[in-house]
Nucleic acid binder design. Sequence first.
DNA 1: AAAATGACGGTGT
DNA 2: TACACCGCCATTT
Length: 112
Amino acid sequence: MLATFKNRVYQVVAQIPKGKVATYGQIAKLAGNKKAARAVGALMKNNPYAPKVACHRVVGFDGRLTGYSGQGGITKKKQWLISEGVIFKKEKVDLEKCLWRQKYNKIKTNNF
DNA sequence: AAAATGACGGTGT
DNA sequence: TACACCGCCATTT
């Protein structure tokens, strides 16, 4: 396993749980470069690890469905996500509920 | 090695 | 919502 950027991206994407989605920027950040969101998309297009890599669970920063070279394109991707339990707001994903969170925010043990 | 490419992110009209 | 522009980055040719 080469520690290249793209491999890290595939590694991260493969960890996205069902019913959740991640943004290109988030993945890029986890991979080491939060500004490499664009590069992430390009890597998804190649997607040599498909279907192991859940490329369909990757959405835009606003939950917007961009890209997807798969069959049916965006429409199919949308349906696919819905089937996994992802909630949709019009043409966008409800990031408030379905955004993948690798790290949970520190819980306040001493509230008040 | 340099140029071209793109499934982004953000801002403006 | 649509369209145009620009900045950014890794991969590919």
